[in-house]
Amino acid sequence: MTSTLTRTVRTATMDDLPGVARVLGRAFHNDPLFLWLFPDDMRRMSRTTRANALLAGFSYIPLGYSTLVEAREDADRGPVIRGAALWSPPSGENGGTAAALRSLPHWLELVGPARFPRMMRYFAALAAHTPREPHWHLQVLGADPAVGRSGVGGLLLNAGLERADADGAPVYLETINTANVGYYTRFGFEIVDTLAEPGTPLTHLMLRPPA
């Protein structure tokens, strides 16, 4: 088991992008979304890592609200990124249309022309189900499997929930992994809708009111 001397939650910057992509790639290697997007077992890790680099680098880290857990696990080594959370704020910012358009050729190359239209329909359906009221949107939350269930995800989630509560805003998220529903329920989230589009993963839409 990893021995952690200190763990710090801080805002992610573009300098952190490689570390954030690596940790999210490991966290989501066997996630149902990425199993659907990248069915090839041999290539899924690299493609999941690149997909998270696209999300983080084009759309979320530049906004200035995404966070990471930096752990100092050895007095003789520097800090290691052990988890990350990608957020968009109640203003509805998500990197902007220009950033999304710039990322599309990369997504097309990554998922391939056969799967790309299905991916776009799925994400369009998610966008259509997003609450209209101002809210913080937890886009991605992942912890390095190397640290197990050691509270990294909880540190990131609690930091975001405290910020949302200070704003008096609800927090919204989507999860495909049914096993995550119970986890988020412990933090005050409830399922408010379910997305069941033909040919796409069953997705639970969850909302937490401000405390």
Rank of each mutant, 00 (worst) to 15 (best):
A99W: 08
P209N: 03
P117S: 10
P117I: 09
P89R: 00
V140W: 03
R186Y: 06
D74R: 05
D193T: 12
V80Q: 13
A100M: 12
L104R: 13
A164T: 00
D15R: 15
N158H: 05
A211E: 06
S103K: 14
N180A: 02
R118L: 11
Y184Q: 10
E162A: 13
F34H: 10
D74C: 12
G199P: 04
L138W: 02
G78W: 02
A75E: 15
F38Q: 09
L101T: 09
N177I: 05
R186E: 12
E109Y: 01
A146D: 07
F116M: 14
A84P: 00
R44K: 02
V20W: 05
M1N: 07
S46W: 02
P79Q: 01
F189N: 05
P32E: 00
R82G: 12
G95E: 07
G182E: 06
T2F: 07
H29I: 01
S59A: 14
G25P: 01
S91V: 01
F189L: 01
P79G: 00
N158F: 06
F38M: 00
G151L: 02
L63K: 06
A211F: 05
F123A: 08
R77K: 14
L110K: 03
R115C: 08
G182C: 04
G96T: 01
L138F: 04
L195F: 06
L54S: 11
A146K: 00
A164S: 05
L55Y: 15
L68I: 15
I176K: 09
A56V: 08
S66A: 13
L155F: 00
V140P: 00
M14A: 13
S46L: 08
G151W: 06
M42L: 14
G19T: 11
G64E: 15
A159C: 09
G57P: 13
P90L: 00
A75K: 11
P209V: 00
Y184C: 07
S91E: 05
G148H: 11
L5T: 14
W107R: 07
S91L: 01
A56Y: 08
M45G: 13
P32K: 01
S3Y: 12
L63M: 09
T185P: 05
I176P: 06
D16R: 14
G19D: 15
T97I: 11
T13E: 07
G112K: 00
A159D: 15
L17H: 10
E109T: 13
S88H: 09
R47Q: 14
Q139I: 12
G168D: 04
P113A: 01
V9A: 11
P18Y: 00
P18N: 03
L68D: 06
M14C: 06
T8I: 13
E109G: 11
